[in-house]
């Protein structure tokens, strides 16, 4: 009973159905996109995916954008730095890896 209530409350807080659609479609898409990738590209692909989840930086910008307490400011600032590191570092490293493949053909 509690569980049911809880699930109900959980669903209510979200723009639920849209979110669930996105979630399921994106999950299938992820699987689809990765299948049949040659082993030589596993490393760059992992690195590229690593850069993409840096999208979490958007959360940190939102948090930071509405922060007022000192704790929120400091932690939010740190989160923005870390998120940027993930994004920039991720894309640059991937690019460097791929550059090496490029030279040949």
């Amino acid at each position: 009973m509690i569980l049911l209530e809880a699930t109900g409350a959980f669903l209510k807080t979200l723009d639920t159905w849209d979110v669930i659609y996105i979630l399921i479609l994106a999950a299938f898409l992820g699987v689809e996109v990765i299948s049949n990738v040659p082993a030589i590209l596993h490393t760059p692909l992992m690195s590229g995916a690593n850069a993409i989840h840096g999208v979490v930086i958007i959360g940190s910008i939102i948090v930071m954008g509405h922060a007022d307490s000192t704790l929120a400011l400091v932690l939010g600032f740190l989160a923005v730095i870390l998120g940027t590191l993930n994004v920039v570092g991720g894309f640059v490293v991937t690019n460097r890896m791929l550059q090496m493949f490029k030279k040949k053909k």
């Binding site: 979200l14 723009d15 979110v19 996105i22 979630l23 994106a26 999950a27 299938f28 898409l29 992820g30 699987v31 996109v33 990765i34 299948s35 596993h42 692909l45 992992m46 995916a49 690593n50 993409i52 989840h53 999208v55 979490v56 958007i58 959360g59 939102i62």
Partner: peptide
């Protein structure tokens, strides 16, 4: 990726959701 998607849930933020879940599922397959 999944953690980023939870951020997407929280802010009802589509790009965090798609990016996070995409990496979550692609990463699992990889």
């Amino acid at each position: 990726g999944v953690a980023a998607a939870f951020g997407g849930f929280l802010y009802d933020n589509q790009v965090m959701l798609t990016g996070g879940i995409l990496v979550g599922s692609a990463g699992t397959i990889l």
